[in-house]
Simulated assay, not measured.
Amino acid sequence: MSDSVGFWKRLFAGVLDGIIISAPLAIIFGVITGDWEDENFSTLFNFLYMVIVPILWYGYTVGKRIMGIRIVRMDGKKLGIGTMLLRYLVAALVYAITLGIGFIVSAFMVGIRKDHRSIHDFIAGTYVTSNEP
C-alpha cells in the first residue's frame, strides 16, 4: 500500500468538498427555506453526497478528484453502500462518542502511520490512494 495518501492531500480534498459542495448546499437550502439556522436538509444532502458519490464515481468525490485521490477497499472490491455507511456513519458515531478525541487520533494516524489509514478506514476496510481506477 505504498500508494496510500497522507494527511495534507486528504485535508485539502475535504476543504475543496466543503467549498464546492457543502457551502453552496447550505446557502441554497438557506435561501429556499429562509431558515439559516436549520441545517438538517443540507446536512442530509451532504451526507448522501459523501456516501453515494464515491460509490458511483470509483471512490472519488469532487474534492478528491481535484486532488487526484480516491477511496478504495482493502480487498480491491468495488465500494458499496455498506462500506460507505461504515466509513461515514459508524465512524461519525465513534468520533461523537469519544467527544472528538477519535477524530484527532485519526488525523494523527493519517499523518504518522506508514499506511496513512485512519479510524474510519479501519472501520470500513478502506484506504485512500492516488492510483487511478
Rank of each mutant, 00 (worst) to 15 (best):
L44G: 01
A23I: 15
I71V: 15
A26I: 10
I32R: 03
G59V: 06
N46V: 02
A92L: 09
K64L: 02
K78T: 14
G125D: 11
S106I: 06
D121L: 07
M109Q: 08
G34A: 07
G34H: 08
Y58G: 01
L25D: 09
I52V: 13
G68C: 05
W36A: 14
M1D: 11
I27F: 13
T126S: 01
G6D: 13
H116N: 13
I123A: 10
V72I: 12
A96C: 10
G82K: 03
R70W: 01
T126E: 07
Y58R: 11
G18A: 07
A13P: 02
E132H: 09
G80M: 02
F45D: 07
G34W: 09
G6E: 13
R10W: 08
L89N: 07
G82N: 02
S2Q: 15
K64R: 13
L89F: 15
F103Q: 12
F122H: 11
W57Y: 06
E132Y: 12
L89A: 14
K9Q: 14
I119N: 06
V53M: 07
L48P: 11
K9V: 00
L93M: 11
V15G: 09
N131A: 01
V51P: 13
S22I: 12
F41W: 15
T126H: 06
I81G: 03
M1I: 10
L79E: 10
V105E: 13
K77D: 13
F7M: 11
G102F: 08
D17F: 03
L85K: 04
D3V: 04
L86G: 13
L48R: 12
P24H: 01
G111K: 06
R70Q: 08
Y49E: 13
E39A: 15
D115M: 07
G111F: 03
L89C: 12
I97V: 15
Y88T: 02
G14I: 01
M1C: 09
P54W: 00
L48D: 12
D115E: 05
L86D: 09
Y127H: 08
T126I: 00
I101M: 07
I71G: 08
G68F: 00
P24K: 05
G125K: 01
G63C: 02
I101T: 07
V90H: 09
W57K: 02
S130V: 03
D17G: 00
D35T: 02
V62G: 05
V15L: 15
E37A: 09
R73N: 14
G30K: 04
R117H: 03
E37S: 12
M1E: 13
K64E: 05
I19C: 01
Y127S: 04
I28Q: 03
A92K: 00
L99M: 14
K9T: 03
L11R: 00
D121A: 10
P133Y: 10
